[in-house]
Design a protein around this nucleic acid. Structure first.
Lengths: 216, 216
DNA sequence: TATTAATATGACCAGGCAGTCACATGACTG
DNA sequence: CAGTCATGTGACTGCCTGGTCATATTAATA
């Protein structure tokens, strides 16, 4: 965690450091992120940086925490699907929320994606588990949905969880590519993100997930 | 491409360099691979290395080429699915072939995976396109399968190609995790790779892909 | 104002890197 | 044997890194 000194900083200065650091961790992988570059861009001395953060890892973990908080923050503003939604409705809402977060904070998403799939010297500490946990959570949800009659009882929960997890992870990338958008350019280009635009894609995806691809 | 000098090397020495370098590119991402470490492990002088390869990138591209050749080599030994297989049969065979390659050459797979999804200074040169090409090829195949009546005409080819592509890419990882195997330890542990063992997983996956997850 | 505590600074350190080059070695030729 | 050419070598360069620390500056307190 950052030191008290960091939190004593004037708001705008603190935020500038965070923003720049996030940009760097979105643009480069862990090894590629240079503290020297960050302090230069932020206009602070190297020594100051190390009065705010213990080391590079400390900064990285903090930024990931910030990303998590931002995501919760955004999701809490979104309306939940009406009533006792079916599994597919709920899941569609979750996925849509994830993609809205990607659109609103592409740098944060990219950083988090790197943390999950990139090379980290401190990977074992939390992140391999994050994937495992997401998988197990999904699996449990699927089991419940099967019991409630929302899903075909013949499917294998482990395999279904795999399919859902891997699709959610990559769906954002796919949608942006499909729409010809570079997510990292989203904020500066002030692209008008139109949720309606992606509904057809969701319809198509969930048709496949629900009914399969085989001939009827 | 490596120099003639490299190809003049005695077989065992050349192979040792290749093997060690592949190990390094499997273990570390591009930035993390150290030529100094490679030459030390291989017991050759730094100067010799640069008489074999132009630079780090030259080595990397060559190793990727080797990986491609090895994959074709292995696949050509596998029996094709009998007769005019349906789309699902063919695709199941392709996916199974991919996983057999992963099991037989986990380091090569890991290196290739890194090349596709990791950070490369020379990424633009070919690799972003590789993904795009795979997607387009899959999409075309799906269109044909629809015309032949092998797939539900109501599905969106683009979305279906996305689902197939992302699942094939990660299916190997998923299977190994499910079986409690670390693919990188496969070769040294001489794990007896039993194809039968993964058939149930394929059955489960293709049930989902064909019939979907929704209640019937 | 004098004293103390908090914060800012950038030259500096040790280590690692990719890549170079002047030279050494060995093998083959006339 | 001398001469030539391919190959091997590792000290070296220049660069960048994460991280340190003695010192300077500023703010707070008495």
């Amino acid at each position: 965690m950052p030191t008290q000194t960091f939190f004593n900083l004037p708001e705008h200065k603190r935020q500038a450091i965070i923003d720049i650091a996030i940009e760097e961790f979105a643009e480069h992988d862990y090894k590629g992120v240079s503290i020297s570059r960050i302090v230069e861009r932020a206009g602070i001395a190297k020594g100051s940086f190390y009065q705010y953060f213990q080391d590079k890892k400390d900064l990285h973990l903090y930024l990931l925490q910030v990303a998590g908080e931002k995501k919760l923050e955004l999701i809490s503003t979104l309306q939940r699907p009406p009533g006792q939604g079916s599994f597919f409705d709920t899941y569609r809402w979750m996925m849509s929320a994830g993609i809205q977060f990607e659109a609103a904070h592409p740098e944060l998403s990219r950083m988090a994606y790197r943390a999950l799939y990139g090379d980290l010297p401190h990977r074992d500490e939390t992140y391999a588990r994050m994937k495992q946990q997401a998988h197990e959570y999904m699996q449990a949800t699927i089991r419940q949905a099967i019991e409630r009659g929302d899903l075909d009882p013949k499917i294998d929960p482990d395999m279904a969880a795999f399919v859902f997890t891997v699709i959610s992870t990559e769906m954002g990338n796919h949608l942006f590519r499909r729409l010809g958008i570079n997510p990292l350019e989203l904020p500066e280009k002030r692209f008008k993100w139109n949720l309606e635009e992606i509904q057809p894609a969701f319809d198509q995806l969930f048709y496949i997930l629900e009914k399969g691809m085989g001939p009827k």
